[in-house]
Design a protein around this nucleic acid. Sequence first.
DNA 1: CCGCTAATCACGCAAGAAGTGGTATTAAAT
DNA 2: ATTTAATACCACTTCTTGCGTGATTAGCGG
Lengths: 210, 210
Amino acid sequence: MALPFKKRVLIVEDDQEIRNSFSLIVNSSQKFMVVNSYGNCEDAIENINKDKPEIILMDIELPGMNGIQGTKIIKEKSPHTDIIMVTVYEDSELVFEALKAGASGYITKSANYMELLSALDEIVKGGAPMSSRIARMVIDNFHVNPNSPLTKRETEILQLISEGKTYTQISEELFISKETAKTHIKNIYSKLQVNSKSEAIAKANLEKLI
Amino acid sequence: MALPFKKRVLIVEDDQEIRNSFSLIVNSSQKFMVVNSYGNCEDAIENINKDKPEIILMDIELPGMNGIQGTKIIKEKSPHTDIIMVTVYEDSELVFEALKAGASGYITKSANYMELLSALDEIVKGGAPMSSRIARMVIDNFHVNPNSPLTKRETEILQLISEGKTYTQISEELFISKETAKTHIKNIYSKLQVNSKSEAIAKANLEKLI
DNA sequence: CCGCTAATCACGCAAGAAGTGGTATTAAAT
DNA sequence: ATTTAATACCACTTCTTGCGTGATTAGCGG
């Protein structure tokens, strides 16, 4: 393997021991090299244009700015850097926040030698390394509730509401009168116990009705 | 391994050859057995309570009802059956539709012996087998656009709008006057080129602004 | 220091959209 | 035969939006 083309990896992790152990593992590979490591996001952000990492292993719990906030800022400054979160928690809120912030992978600190390197490989080949549990969490998040209280027509209309359509547009699109659209929407509101379009959308997303 | 505890696998696939080859592979494993295989969803749905599969390998392109529609119906009738889509396409629309319908995995027909069995293993241990590209596609879907045209405050307000809040609620929650909330919302509308809350939500989701 | 942007606050008025509360008919499904 | 889903209309109220205008304060970068 051609040495000059090793992928540049940056580590952001406040625990010195973990930092060292990860560095050793990454550097042991023919394909990767650690360009730098920091104990906080602020330093990493400051030096991002100098370090030019292609991949960052990012802790979430950090002194000062946390890893999720840091991920957002780094992705703004360096959009093509892939970030893998490395954390002890598999808490669903944190996972989704991290993914929204721009993370492309999510592994736990218990990752061993092989798991860490295969996560890096996975990133390089355009994938998204995740533990089984995270993968399932993410996929489950897409699932639409099959036990919706809404009828087919109501769901159809709720869908159009979520696309930002007005009463008039909905009625035109479905070839029904505006009054009928209103009736359906009234029924949707009463079933979902809401009283506005945006509340209906919020509830629909929350309960995965669309 | 205890034979009576083999996991029950059902195959829905219209190509006889693929059906046979998948059957052979699955049956070759100590951990899985093919309980039945069908060339269309209709037959699979009809016999679902008799076959009692724990896992279904489901094709998408099928004569009659397609695999996505079939997945929806099967998940209604048998919520605990895990469904893995097996298809030639990795088209993003189809993938997301399949996941919304209730699929827990997504592999391609080119999957070999090992890939197929490890997908089944992955499902059994509560994961979500996917190819690298699909995993990335799914994760990318979470990423929030870091180049939003909106200011921090406007994003904050857009967030509240998406939660179904009224002008009054927004102003109360942010300790600002109703008039100020209106001003911000007007600015949001002009930046997003929309003219209602629900359109703003739609655009925000589309462009991943929140 | 100056200029810009963001964030805040405020008023008014008209038109249209949305929401509330009824009633009612028809077809399909059970 | 009864219920559910889908359709439609009316009347009335309230909220939202469009358009315009103006002003203050804080913070940032040149």
